[in-house]
């Protein structure tokens, strides 16, 4: 009886990041109001919401680019909200962030872009190891031949993949995706979704995906959270939410 209980416990995914009572406002505009979320290990969690609902604000609070007014974001037993400088950078080295605009450095080659986080996080790696890691990251996204190209020479989909390779270079356990398929054609968007799924399966990463693209929500998300009026309005699988009779939830799936 005791053994069965332990087996059941191990089947519950571990919480790798916990957000509690998060508040964020800009002047009189309350963007996040008592927002709560647990990110489960090895699962892709999608935050679905309308434009301007605070999705990007949420993800920027998690990575420390914005400071919430109150609440806590616990990652690796540290509350990111209270961290600064080197301590915050230490956590950031374990959390990958894919920017909506890719944020590739225009003045650097693809290789320099990808190795930038490696060099900046003071990781003790040799030049040979750096080259090997860059090649591996490029292989993961299927763009090994672009290593010496400049970002301006790449298409939108390729830029997204290179940005993803840069995110993967530090082998993060948590990846934050900010609108990964926005601005891409449906075919390229599907390729990026498949890439995100492959990465999760290969590296057992846990991802928080911000999106309003229903294809991304459907295929990439193991769990979906609807962000409405600054709160976590609903949570469930794609099918559960799609079959909901609640009008506010249905509007996302119609």
């Amino acid at each position: 009886m005791k053994t069965t209980s332990i087996t059941q416990l191990t089947e519950i995914p571990e919480t790798i990041m916990s957000i509690s009572n998060l508040y964020k406002s800009f002047g009189s505009n309350n963007v996040l109001i008592n927002f709560n979320l647990d990110l489960l290990k090895g699962k892709n969690t999608v935050v679905l919401g309308k434009s301007g609902s605070g999705k990007s604000v949420l993800i920027k609070c998690i990575i420390g680019l914005l400071k919430p007014d109150s609440g806590s974001i616990i990652v690796y037993n540290e509350n990111i909200v209270n961290l600064h400088g080197a301590k915050l950078d230490k956590i950031r080295a374990k959390v990958g962030f894919l920017f909506q605009s890719n944020a590739l450095y225009d003045s650097m080659t693809v290789k320099e872009n990808i190795e930038f986080p490696l060099r900046r996080h003071w990781l003790k790696v040799t030049q040979l190891e750096v080259s090997k890691m860059v090649e591996e990251a490029l292989e993961d996204v299927g763009l090994s031949h672009t290593i010496n190209m400049m970002p301006a020479e790449l298409s939108g989909g390729m830029r997204k993949r290179i940005a993803l390779a840069r995110t993967l270079i530090l082998k993060p356990e948590i990846i934050l995706y900010d609108e990964p398929t926005t601005g891409l054609d449906p075919i390229t968007g599907k390729e990026i979704i498949n890439l995100m799924i492959d990465i999760k399966n290969k590296y057992n990463t846990s991802a928080l995906i911000i999106s309003h693209d229903m294809n991304c929500v459907r295929w990439a998300g193991d769990r979906i959270i609807i962000l409405l009026e600054g709160k976590c309005y609903a949570m469930g699988t794609y099918e559960e939410l799609k079959n909901s009779q609640n009008q506010k939830i249905k509007q996302f799936f119609d």
């Binding site: 920027k60 990575i63 680019l65 950078d89 950031r92 080295a93 962030f97 920017f99 909506q100 605009s101 890719n102 944020a103 590739l104 450095y105 225009d106 930038f116 986080p117 900046r120 996080h121 003071w122």
Partner: peptide, 14 residues
């Protein structure tokens, strides 16, 4: 760099 989030990307990269 600011409007294309490259400055934010630098901050995230330590």
């Amino acid at each position: 760099m600011k409007v294309t989030e490259q400055i934010d990307a630098m901050e995230v990269s330590g």
